[in-house]
């Protein structure tokens, strides 16, 4: 058995550890004393309406913003002290599309791999593995501009995986997609968690994307209202389902806070 006292922090720590994180835009506080964990190998849903602070939190985790209040650690690597070690273990799918439209799928993936110090030949081999069986594997030379919304999203997920991260953040990844594309993307990311032991933090305002087996963090107006398994949150609130639990936690009607059921 491995001696845990001598193991590196990344071997025992949770995939993501957020402790007392806060952030303000001038006088307006966007996040206040936010703390939660994403256990290894879990699919954790960060559930909150528009304006809850999800994107701000993602900007802090990806170090686009500096963490001035609290602490963030990825696989045990403190983001402020060892940002390189933390970020190399992190894959990100941002809410806004961030692919270079004038480059091909292959060029986008090779470029992203290079930003992680991965040579082009390794990146090309990996993209073959990641996209194997997908219709995109025959379209690697196509410009991203010519892809559908769903296909672009899948390329962004492939890009987030190309450097083999242990934790993947996805910020509203299914917004704007049709029902079939949404279902495929959700299923693919769940498969990664199940089969590849990747940890996922999935930010959404679409409550029907929450599965009974998921962990949930409810974020509202910059504060964490609940954290745990779906069953825990439902039980703690004394409600019959996650939808009612959220309504009770926020003491508001779902449609009033922008939380939606996808049709």
């Amino acid at each position: 058995m491995q001696d845990l006292s001598t193991a590196s922090p990344g071997m025992t720590a949770p995939a993501l550890d957020i402790e007392a994180v806060g952030h303000a835009y001038g006088a307006r506080r966007a996040l206040d004393d936010v703390s939660f964990r994403v256990p290894r190998g879990s699919f954790t849903v960060l559930l909150g309406p528009n304006g809850a602070g999800k994107s701000t939190l993602f900007s802090l985790i990806t170090r686009l913003f500096a963490t001035r209040e609290g602490r963030i650690a990825i696989l045990g690597h403190d983001l402020a002290r060892t940002p390189g070690e933390a970020l190399r273990r992190l894959g990100v799918v941002f809410q806004a599309r961030t692919l270079d439209l004038d480059l091909s799928i292959r060029q986008n993936l090779v470029y992203h791999a290079a930003l992680h110090g991965i040579p082009a030949r390794v990146a090309k081999a990996r993209m073959g593995e990641i996209l194997a069986g997908s219709d995109l594997v025959d379209r690697l030379g196509d410009k991203v501009r010519n892809l559908s919304g769903g296909q672009s999203r899948r390329v962004e997920i492939a890009r987030a995986l190309i450097h083999r991260p242990r934790l993947i953040l996805l910020d509203e990844p299914t917004v704007g997609l049709d029902i079939r594309s949404r279902a495929e993307i959700v299923a693919e990311v769940r498969r990664l968690v199940r089969e590849e032991n990747v940890s996922v933090l999935w930010a959404t305002h679409l409550i029907d994307e929450v599965d009974a087996s998921d962990r949930v963090v409810v974020l509202h107006r910059g504060t964490v209202l609940a954290e745990g398994t779906v069953a825990d949150v439902v039980e703690d609130t004394g409600t019959s389902g996650i939808r009612d639990a959220f309504a009770k936690l926020t003491e508001t009607r779902l449609h009033a806070v922008g939380l939606e059921l996808a049709s």
Binding site: P83, V92, T98, L115
Partner: peptide, 8 residues
């Protein structure tokens, strides 16, 4: 953002 979240 793609550039700025590089670990380097």
């Amino acid at each position: 953002k793609t550039l700025l979240v590089s670990p380097l």
